[in-house]
Design a protein around this nucleic acid. Structure first.
Length: 413
RNA sequence: CGGGGCAUAGUGUAAUGGUUAACAUAGGCGCUUUGGGAGCGUCUGAUUCUCGGUUCGAGUCCGAGUGCCCCGACCA
């Protein structure tokens, strides 16, 4: 897209109050706008990034048989009442202002809703297993929103639910999801640590979290230096920390961001909604369930926390808002001509390009903007690049971008 | 929810209790300029968060409220 048409702009100054790096950079670069504490709008650049993360999630969910669905935001209170979750204090409630519309809870997790739906379709062991997921905005009344996209009152989440005939089958699938999660985060440019967490009242055993080590993280985890085993603070409190329980290696304490989690739910929800099936012997049994979450917007924030430098964001290739940043320098008609035609041919070859065609902008400003926005490939067209060699220009090139000779562009990208 | 901090053009800052609230940046117009936020000129832009109080006089002092940020608690 033409940068002259992009309705957002970068700003030189970070918003006064913001401390978290992801908030500062994403707001300065115009990726997001904060409407209230913990409530963000995603603007063109930010939405492109979030959509790319969603694309990756969809691909990897499809690879493990996840079927995409879309569940209601307004969840009738009776659902959460059925499992005793109606009074959890992260709840946002909603009801009609002047008409009797019933009472709703803004959905923050959809086990109940989907379990009831499943009970409408699952009767036999032949109907199992299956897994369904959605990508949706969730609302939680966080007492304290903080750290930009890392802890919002509203956030974009992928929630996957799986349904099985036996605990063994659930655990088999649990491992599949685990692998898919590692892939997703890796493609997003994040190295995650698989961390043991204590299960809550709604799970059948311990759960696991995917943690990204970062100073701003609000979680504390303990990681074995030898075998990479990790557990979170709650688990360590219960059994006391000193040595790795797996290999007796040394344990190190780290701050981290929880970008995903997986829960073996067992029969809690299927019991609450009488979700049963008939097995091979003709016996009625409760379906065994699992649930698996990824915070997409939080993942985006975590990526910025991990991938940035003094000048701005450095997006990992797969989730960068554009494949390349084409920068036009100068008003020379020949230069313009070349960059216009290059823009056209890049688009024709399926490269998503942000084309900085803005006039009246100085060189430094264009580069500063590009550094801030952080598209990992950059193509500069100027009188100089039209001359033979740009080796001397390459020298000035900083580590975050690649300066490409126009002749090579098509094969390089 | 406890504790702390902050609130002034779109953004970032300034202004002993004393004219018409200033500067930078962003924005408009004109000219110049094009490999790291370039220059000159000109114009525009503010109920100084809200309500109340003290005072001859409040952006400034006092009280309450609201919002935002940070620490903690919380985080099925």
């Amino acid at each position: 897209m033409r940068q002259s048409q992009l309705f957002t702009k970068t700003s030189r100054e970070a918003p006064k109050d913001e401390q978290a790096l992801n908030a500062k950079l994403l707001m300065r670069a115009g990726f997001v706008h904060k409407n209230s504490a913990g409530v963000y709008s995603f603007l063109p650049l930010g939405w492109r990034v979030l959509s790319k993360i969603a694309d990756i999630v969809r691909e990897e969910m499809a690879a493990i048989g996840g079927q995409e669905i879309f569940l209601p935001v307004l969840v009738d209170k009776r659902y959460y009442k059925a499992t005793g979750r109606a009074n959890v204090d992260i709840t946002f409630e909603a009801k009609g202002k002047s008409h009797d519309t019933g009472e709703f809870i803004i959905g923050w997790s959809h086990e109940e809703v989907l379990t009831e739906i499943a009970s409408r379709f699952v009767f036999s062991f032949k109907d199992l297993p299956f897994a369904a997921y959605q990508i949706q905005t969730k609302a939680r009344a966080e007492p304290r929103a903080k750290s930009g996209l890392l802890r919002g009152r509203e956030f974009v989440m992928k929630d996957l639910y799986s349904f099985h005939a036996s605990k063994e089958d659930l655990l088999r699938y649990y491992e599949e999801v685990k692998k898919a999660y590692f892939k997703i985060f890796k493609r997003c440019g994040l190295e995650t640590i698989y961390t043991l967490a204590s299960g809550g009242v709604f799970t059948m055993s311990n759960t696991h979290e995917f943690q990204v080590v970062a100073p701003l993280g609000e979680d504390t985890i303990y990681v074995c230096q030898k075998c990479k085993y990790a557990e979170n603070k709650e688990v360590s409190k219960i059994r006391g920390i000193s040595k790795c329980p797996k290999c007796s290696g040394q344990i190190q304490e780290k701050r981290s961001i929880e970008v995903g989690n997986i829960f073996p739910l067992g029969e809690k929800y299927s019991k609450a909604f009488d979700l049963r099936f008939t097995d091979k012997k003709g016996e009625k049994k409760y379906v065994v369930m699992g649930s698996y979450g990824i915070g997409l917007s939080r993942t985006m924030g975590a990526v910025v926390e991990v991938h940035h430098d003094q000048e701005g964001i450095i997006w990992p290739k797969e989730i960068a808002p554009f494949g390349a940043h084409l920068i036009l320098l100068g008003e020379e008609s020949k230069v313009k001509e070349v960059s216009e035609s290059l823009y056209g041919s890049l688009k024709k070859h399926g490269v998503e390009v942000l084309y900085d065609d803005r006039e009246q902008k100085t060189v430094g400003e264009k580069f500063a903007d590009a550094d801030l926005i952080g598209i990992p490939w950059r193509i500069v067209i100027s009188e100089r690049t039209l001359q033979k060699d740009c080796a001397e220009l390459k020298k000035r090139n900083d580590k975050k971008v690649k300066l490409v000779k126009i002749k090579n562009v098509q094969q390089t990208i």
